[in-house]
């Protein structure tokens, strides 16, 4: 059974946020009105964190695209009083909207701040409803939502592979963010398959995970951006 995971190469990420918008359009995430945006209520399953440090002119910014990291040991599911969230056998942390009572314990428990609450009935002004994706349900007001790794795409990919009488191959199933990335900075696949691209990259010396010390065991793995090491043919150094 696969264990789905993602690798994000911070050397290549341009901080363009195409991944952010691709996710929102794929998953029917409504835009909140400006007044609510000002209160920090934009829903965005993946965000690019700027991570600015230092003082002028010695500054660093390490823009970090951050979806739900799909912890193997997720703190969020333990706190849910009604069992509205869980981790499936393939390692995807899922939210069952119909069961969610909106208590937001999970949003507090997530150290990565990757769970969002629907404060309002979703609004799709004008004809924006025309662009809704039928594969993804629109969440009602009052529930918590989060990145699903575009799980609906897995189901479609499986159906298609079955129809063609073959096994699911690498690249058949990729989330919308990974697919759109203009820099090719994101990779997706089965971490348990030692030959997969993600598993190979995750073993490399640039690989690290966020807030690993909390014991969450994230399945989103980053590659450090490294630095230019002179024209000595060495490539990126970490």
């Amino acid at each position: 059974m696969p264990r789905w995971g993602m690798v994000i190469d911070l050397a290549k990420c341009t901080a363009c946020q195409a991944c952010v918008v691709a996710c929102q359009t794929e998953n029917n995430v409504p835009c909140v009105p400006p007044e609510q945006a000002a209160r920090g209520r934009i829903i965005s399953w993946i965000s690019v964190l700027p991570q600015l440090e230092g003082e002028y002119p010695r500054l660093t910014m390490r823009p970090t695209p951050l979806p739900c990291v799909h912890c193997d040991n997720p703190p969020c599911i333990r706190v849910c009083p009604v069992g509205a969230t869980g981790i499936n056998p393939e390692g995807v942390v899922r939210q069952i909207f119909a069961r969610c009572i909106g208590c937001r314990y999970c949003t507090n428990a997530c150290p990565y701040t990757r769970r969002m609450f629907n404060w309002y009935r979703p609004e799709f002004p004008g004809e924006f409803t025309e662009a809704l994706n039928p594969d993804v349900s629109v969440r009602p007001k009052g529930v918590v939502e989060k990145c699903t790794l575009c799980h609906h795409r897995l189901q479609k990919a499986r159906d298609q592979a079955r129809a063609q009488n073959r096994e699911l191959a690498e690249g058949d199933y990729i989330p919308a963010c990974v697919e759109i990335c203009p820099a090719g900075a994101m990779y997706f696949g089965d971490l348990d398959d030692p030959n997969s691209t993600v598993a190979t990259l995750a073993r490399g010396r640039r690989a690290f995970r966020l807030l690993e010390e909390l014991g969450t065991k994230p399945k989103v793995i980053y590659l450090a951006q490294g630095e230019w090491s002179g024209g000595d043919g060495q490539g990126a150094r970490t």
């Binding site: 920090g40 965000s47 208590c103 937001r104 949003t107 701040t113 969002m116 609450f117």
Partner: peptide, 10 residues
């Protein structure tokens, strides 16, 4: 990020 971004409080 949590303060600026989207975080819910119980």
């Amino acid at each position: 990020f949590a303060l600026g971004g989207a975080a819910g409080t119980a």
